[in-house]
Every structure is written in structure tokens, then in C-alpha cells.
Simulated scan of single mutants.
Amino acid sequence: MTTTETRQLRPGRIDRIGNRLVNALMRLGVSVADSRELAVRGRTSGEWRTTPVNLLTVDGERYLVAPRGHVQWVRNLLAAGGGELRLGRRTETFTATELADDAKPALLRVYLRRWAWEVGRFFENVDADSPDERIREIAPGMPVFRIDRG
């Protein structure tokens, strides 16, 4: 494995504060830039784990992108095969399918166009206008899941 495939970027202090604020708004039913609270059962504990995510919709299909790499929610989602997206009192159960690296560049480009202001620093000097070859280089370190209503 390359370092790109195994990298994990931990949230800093500002990220944790921002996540708490976004989570509080989502629990009130307010989505910030298509944010949702992702809930996934822990692969070891079986307990629900939550984190804010950006719900990407492209051509009617919905996706979750892990800009920080192969973090705990990604590992839990792979083990569980699905989870819940929450916004206020609404809970949607879904199943998840991880995409192959070849399928990621166009989606990562759209993701960056929408949320570079929030997550661009995690994309290793790649932006929405980077060449496809450069986006393909980072694709193994950016898990992307297609989600379907469960």
C-alpha cells in the first residue's frame, strides 16, 4: 500500500468545534451545505457512532466521500454495509457500496467544486481543476461510497 491509501488525517481543534456546531444544527433539522449526521454501527462494539458528512448527489445518485481517508467511519461502514443518515427527526436507512478507484475522479471533482472551502486541505494539492491523472493518483486514499435507500 502507498501512503495515500493508508493516510488518516485527524480533525484538529477547529474541525472538532465546527463538527459540534454542524451536529447541533443537524439535530435541529438544519442542513449546512447538504450535511447529514452519518450513523454507523461500530465494527467491534456494535454501538452507534456518528459523524457529520456531506451528501453528494450527482445525476440522481447519492454518494459519501471520506476526504480524510480511511478513517473509523469508513472502516465501520465497510463492515456494516450501511447505516443511517440523520437530519433532525428524519432518519434514512441506507446500504453502501464502495466505488472502484477508476470511478472516483469525476465524483471527486464535483465534491471539490462544492466543498473545497471546507475539505480542500485534505486533497493533497488537488483541486477541482486538476488534471484527471492527478485526481486518479489520490483516489485510493479517498474512499467513495454510493448509497441506496435501505
Rank of each mutant, 00 (worst) to 15 (best):
L108I: 05
R121K: 15
A106M: 12
L87S: 11
T91S: 06
W117Q: 02
N76C: 01
K104V: 01
E133I: 03
N125A: 10
V119F: 12
A139R: 00
M142A: 07
N76F: 05
S130K: 03
L107R: 08
E118I: 10
G82R: 07
D101F: 05
R121G: 06
E118C: 11
A139S: 12
P131K: 03
A106E: 13
D127S: 09
A100K: 15
R86S: 06
E98L: 11
L77P: 01
Y111T: 00
R90L: 10
Y111L: 04
L78S: 15
P140D: 01
A100F: 10
E84S: 12
V126I: 10
R121Q: 11
G81S: 14
F94D: 02
A106R: 10
R134S: 08
D132W: 14
A96F: 08
R109T: 03
V144Q: 01
A96G: 12
V119D: 07
A106L: 10
T91I: 10
R121E: 04
K104I: 02
N125H: 14
P105I: 08
A79K: 04
L112I: 06
A103H: 13
F94K: 08
Y111H: 05
L107S: 02
F145M: 11
F123R: 00
G81I: 12
T93P: 15
M142I: 12
G81E: 09
R114K: 04
R121H: 11
G81Y: 05
L77Y: 04
R114G: 12
L99R: 05
L85W: 01
F122C: 14
R136Q: 11
P140Y: 02
P140R: 09
R136M: 02
F145D: 00
R86D: 02
L77E: 05
P143N: 07
E137D: 08
A128D: 03
G88N: 03
E137M: 14
G83V: 01
Y111G: 00
N76D: 13
L87C: 13
V144K: 02
V144P: 00
T97V: 10
A128Q: 09
L78P: 03
R113Y: 09
I135E: 00
A139G: 03
N125R: 11
A116Y: 02
Y111P: 00
R75W: 07
M142C: 11
A116F: 10
V110E: 06
R75I: 13
P131C: 09
L99W: 08
T91N: 14
G88S: 08
E133P: 13
R121I: 08
P131L: 04
A139C: 12
L85R: 01
G82A: 10
L99A: 13
A80K: 06
L78Y: 11
P140T: 03
L108T: 00
V74L: 14
G83F: 05
A96H: 03
E137T: 09
G83Y: 06
D132N: 08
W117C: 15
V126K: 06
